[in-house]
């Protein structure tokens, strides 16, 4: 079956290698700091005039967090290129779905609010 799974870490009975966890904790702190920034922005920029700007920052930071979770924790950054694209290209199609339906939603709302006025 999946015999190759052990090829990079040959198993020697009775001998356990030292843990290599520095990169894990680094990714952890990156995620914590990004989340903290998100909270700071949520309470600092409360004015309705800044709403669009604030939400764009949130979306950028969310995608940045997703990049670290998928790239490091799920190890996708270290997979072969074809696997990376197999996952990313279909997912990126969601961007268009969101843009199309959010626009559609605004349009429906606008239409309904003017339905009984001329």
């Amino acid at each position: 079956m999946s015999a190759h799974a052990t090829t990079e870490h040959a198993y020697v009975p009775g001998e356990i290698a030292k843990p290599n966890t520095a990169w894990i904790w680094k990714t952890f702190w990156v995620l914590v700091i990004i989340t903290a920034i998100e909270f700071a922005i949520a309470f600092a920029l409360t004015s309705p005039d800044w709403r669009t700007f604030r939400n764009s920052i949130f979306i950028v930071l969310t995608i940045l967090k997703a990049f670290f979770i998928v790239g490091e924790f799920m190890h996708l950054k270290h997979e072969v290129k074809s696997l990376i694209w197999t996952v990313l290209i279909p997912t990126s199609l969601l961007v268009w779905l969101v843009v199309a339906l959010v626009t559609e939603g605004s349009f429906i709302g606008e239409t309904l609010s003017h339905m009984f006025s001329s």
Binding site: T91, L94, L97, V98, L101, V102, T103, E104, G105, S106, I108, G109, L112
Partner: peptide
């Protein structure tokens, strides 16, 4: 993605 897109659409409708 479909759930969250539906959320975005319905929120913008209101």
């Amino acid at each position: 993605g479909a759930f969250l897109t539906a959320y975005g659409m319905i929120r913008h409708k209101h």
